[in-house]
Design a protein around this nucleic acid. Sequence first.
DNA 1: CGACGTGTTGATCTCTCTCAATTAGAGTGG
DNA 2: CCACTCTAATTGAGAGAGATCAACACGTCG
Lengths: 272, 272
Amino acid sequence: MSNDTPLPDNVSIPSAAAGRVGGVTVKYVSCQACPLRALPLFTDHAPAELAVIESLKREQIVVQADRSIIHEGQSNAPLYTLLSGWAFRFKTLSDGRRQILNFLLAGDFVGVQQKMGDASPHGVQALSDVVLCVFQRDAVWELHRSAPTLGFAVTWLTAHEESLVDDTLLSVGRRSAEERIATLLVVLFKRAAALIPGIDTQQLGVPFPLTQQHIADGLGLSLVHTNKTLRKLERRGLHRIEDGRLHLLDVRALTRIGDPYGDGKPAQRPLI
Amino acid sequence: MSNDTPLPDNVSIPSAAAGRVGGVTVKYVSCQACPLRALPLFTDHAPAELAVIESLKREQIVVQADRSIIHEGQSNAPLYTLLSGWAFRFKTLSDGRRQILNFLLAGDFVGVQQKMGDASPHGVQALSDVVLCVFQRDAVWELHRSAPTLGFAVTWLTAHEESLVDDTLLSVGRRSAEERIATLLVVLFKRAAALIPGIDTQQLGVPFPLTQQHIADGLGLSLVHTNKTLRKLERRGLHRIEDGRLHLLDVRALTRIGDPYGDGKPAQRPLI
DNA sequence: CGACGTGTTGATCTCTCTCAATTAGAGTGG
DNA sequence: CCACTCTAATTGAGAGAGATCAACACGTCG
């Protein structure tokens, strides 16, 4: 499973440090040279701003697939940024029922929700091998203090992540199993595709390190029902998951299933 | 329904403006004199910071119960702060299915999620009569620019609101109807109680302007099943809803129903 | 080679939804 | 003051989407 998001060339795992909890330190990449900067998704920052970020960055670590990045209830967890790979945030009830809150892809923050000093209200786990940039714990505050533009960006990113959770809540609360799965596939496909501009997703699909259990936990479904619904969509020729890659064969149809009548626009209802 | 959160004394509705869309302008209250400042919930801000907030504040408006504050898809909605009353954020599917994302109480932001210029990804509606402070649209940015401490506070508040949605998602995805309702009652009770320090909630309960339809839409349940479950809990003597007020008669039991084995602590599972 | 993780499928079972009908209170108009 | 209407709450009955239980296939790995 850990080979669907190959580690970047600039990362090496020092075998001596292999046993370390929470990940392995890897070759440092300056924020200037950050591969994410090239993506259209990311706004370009002034050199001065990059310097601020750089000054707050401590190191880079690798966490292997399926290992924990932040434990539920952990206090004083550092602030991370996801440089490559997939992860997810989750919460569990005491009897083990788990809900995945959202999936994290390259560029996402890990751990902003946490008030420094507090216990993390959710866990974070790696889905594939993952490279994280580690920032000092008060980085969010320092960012605000020394670069308002970046502080604003953090606020906006946080708000944006919330709106992803909002979307999932809409799905889990009001969509049928088939609709939920169709929606999730489309959303994850688009997010993943945006990170690898230029490749022919039609032919190659996108990396997809989730197991069916992850899909189930992300959508509030049972594993069995997730499997059956997934197969149904697959047999209809809408998608294919193979070798850790997701291929969407009929995005239009999947989108329509996700929101039958509306093309993504909200309902036209009498405005009170 | 609109009498459960009586308007503060300092608010008057000019009858001349009664027809205005989106609310009625009311007597201005300076941020210095803001009644919310007295609450233990809110950290005290320096006079200089208050001045910044004050300078961004435009007016105050009243929106009546059940009226829309921000329409789904509305663009250029202003930034509000909820001064008193209850509201909720929601999303709807094109066929009308509605999911309430979270409930808003005094002190909450309304509309930070929205990137200025963009369409609002969710609607906001008043549950009771509501008083809102209206801020200029770029207030979030101005706050960051001129008062980093406040900018940081906004980030934190946004993150905090997300964690409320996280909690709901856990409920909707993984809890039974009974567990969901028990959890919601406890959470809303506590939030409401924190806003009226000193009163004997044991005797008086807290204001509770939700209809059963709101509870259903907030928990991903049908109206009928919500009613039946609510009655079941009520018959067991755990709570009472009467005259727009919620009384919790057995918080302990309700909490236990919400998370059977854990007292709010996350599960003790083998840490991978 | 056996243990394990993941995916698959069939057979029940049940929680929750949908449909229907009734009650109670608030507001309106004659 | 009394029909009439509307909304919110309630309750029963039947249907169904999705959960649970069980078994099996397949590939990887120590």
